[in-house]
């Protein structure tokens, strides 16, 4: 039996429980949808990065984004002829600067030095090296400001539009180009960033 004194308390308890259940029921489907959306975004992000990585791993990028103390050459990534060195600023050793041979445009002859404005490697203190990295390691390196030249994710986008990066798509005679067009590459990069910049394990 419920006494007259117990009835209001029970009514309040039931109302509170009901409100709580309604609240939870309203929240639960949303959380679930968000989870699905996040999972979808992560999948999209991973796919986008896979496309981005196909360009980053092309010889035109790898030959300078290397952990070695000098640049590489060719589609087989062999060491640069004449043992050319990176130098502290990435522009060659003090008396053998990159611009000694590399002009602001490609040489026209087969195997003549290629060229673009600001021809250089990443500097010694942040070599931005990803030759030999797994997909996950590459992704985390690209995202890490201590390893990517102190860039935010958004900063990566204008970097991809510099003359030196764009050179990869017009590298001169005898050199292959990355597997995606430049437009598609930048579009997939933006997609990766917009979907959370997820990284593979």
């Amino acid at each position: 039996m419920i006494s007259r004194h117990q009835a209001p308390f029970l009514l309040c308890s039931c109302a509170a429980t009901l409100l709580l259940l309604v609240g939870i029921s309203k929240f639960l489907p949303r959380a679930s949808a968000r989870g699905q959306a996040n999972a979808g975004n992560t999948e999209k992000s991973l796919l986008a990065f896979r496309a981005v990585a196909s360009v980053l791993n092309s010889p035109r990028c790898l030959n300078c984004h290397t952990p070695s103390d000098g640049p590489l050459q060719g589609d087989d990534n062999h060491p640069h002829a004449m043992n050319v060195k990176r130098g502290t600023d990435g522009k060659g050793s003090p008396a053998l600067r990159c611009f000694a041979c590399h002009q602001t445009e490609n040489g026209k002859a087969l195997h003549a030095p290629p060229g673009a404005a600001d021809w250089q490697l990443p500097p010694q203190k942040t070599p931005m090296a990803w030759k030999g990295l797994s997909m996950g390691e590459l992704c985390r390196t690209v995202k890490d400001p201590t390893k990517n030249g102190n860039r935010t994710l958004q900063d990566l986008i204008p970097h991809m539009d510099t003359p030196l990066v764009r050179w990869a798509w017009s590298p001169g005679p005898g050199r292959t180009v990355p597997p995606l067009s430049h437009d598609e590459f930048v579009s997939r990069l933006k997609e990766w960033i917009d979907t959370g910049a997820a990284c593979p394990e």
């Binding site: 043992n83 050319v84 008396a95 053998l96």
Partner: peptide, 16 residues
């Protein structure tokens, strides 16, 4: 740029 180059400095600079 280097008034007192080492052998290594010379090798790097003259490699080309």
């Amino acid at each position: 740029v280097n008034a007192n180059p080492s052998d290594a400095d010379i090798d790097d600079a003259m490699a080309g």
